Amino acid sequence: MKLTRRRVLGLLAGAAAAIGVPSVWMSRMKTYAGPVSDHFDGERFFDPDGMPPKSLTEVLRWQFGRNRQRHAWPEWAPSPYADTPPERVAGEKVRLSFVGHASWLIQTAGLNILVDPLWSMRASPFSFAGPKRHNDPGIAFDKLPEIDVVLVSHGHYDHLDIPTLSMLAAKFSPRVITPLGNDVTMRGADSAIRAEGFDWHDRVELGNAVAVTLVPTRHWSARGLFDRNKTLWASFVMETPAGKLYVVCDSGYGEGKHFRRVADAHGPLRLAILPIGAYEPRWFMRDQHMNPSDAVMALGDCGAQAAVANHHGTFQLTDEAIDAPVTALHAALDEAKIPREKFVALKPGQVFEI
């Protein structure tokens, strides 16, 4: 394989989206400074129950050894659905619209909340290289209702997308709730982004009796070669009139401790949003991304009444086929004797209501 400059940048951009290892040029940024804690050593964050990120050598071994043709995705895989959400959702109802990958619009109690919004064509630090969309967002940007709050789970490029956050800031000026350090990244890129950084276990009032608590998750963060774990990562427990939602945008499974602790501290949970994609090869991905079998175990651990899947079917970050996560999810549910309707996988533009 001829390693042209463009090919090398493409490989780095692919790694950046999946596990946060882009070029050296993307690493010169301001970072968080704060007191030492049980998960921050004064310079970098860490998960006492997690695993450190893979080394650059392991990243390059994976990237340069991948067999892309074996699990090639179609150039374009359009969803048959497109959502035009209402302006507001009142009462005790919760309306969740799947935008794609880890992006959601959650409407409840008169609030419109976006999770990990990404409307860009690539999940990458580059406009010309890196993982490219295989379908449109489930909601066209100009069809969005007024956005009040944005939740951003961590700094990887497929979750923290500065161009989208800038568009949202210009049009709606929403609050942006994010783990510590990611607010520094956002404001450093665009001072109009109203980013607020919070630590694990912080509870944030969003208004109208809706609140969100940042909870530990088994993952990590980076946007450059030299800033690994200099920003925090989290999942969210959202309190709504219809019950609590557990929003997991990216996580490994490990021994399931994170999920059981959320059940103990925040249960009962009405619904969990759980990732099911970007999991192959397992030697590389198991510590940071769940596969569908892991996600089914996570559902049991957290005790949610039902689950919807995310982190699949839009960007090819890893080596499995585009339809493999949903197929494997059905097989894992069948094996566990759990009805398929308890854990559903939507296509972009589909809606789930409580």
Rank of each mutant, 00 (worst) to 15 (best):
D136S: 13
A33K: 14
A324I: 04
G243V: 05
I276Y: 08
T164F: 05
D294V: 12
A170Y: 01
G267Y: 05
A295F: 08
K257A: 11
F40D: 11
N182P: 10
R7D: 12
P241I: 06
D199E: 10
I162Q: 06
H201G: 00
A17C: 10
D83F: 10
P145L: 04
A295G: 12
A309W: 03
G243N: 07
T327R: 13
S153F: 11
D301R: 05
G303N: 08
R194I: 06
L144P: 04
E92T: 14
G100Q: 09
A211I: 05
V248R: 03
A109K: 08
F98N: 00
A278W: 08
T231R: 15
G42A: 08
V99H: 00
R44V: 11
A195F: 10
T84L: 11
E320K: 03
D47I: 04
R68W: 14
N291W: 08
P145V: 06
V308M: 10
L12R: 11
G188R: 05
K347H: 09
R7Y: 12
V204T: 00
S127Y: 05
T178W: 07
P86C: 03
S166K: 13
W283Q: 07
I162S: 09
D199Q: 12
V351Q: 04
R261D: 15
D47R: 13
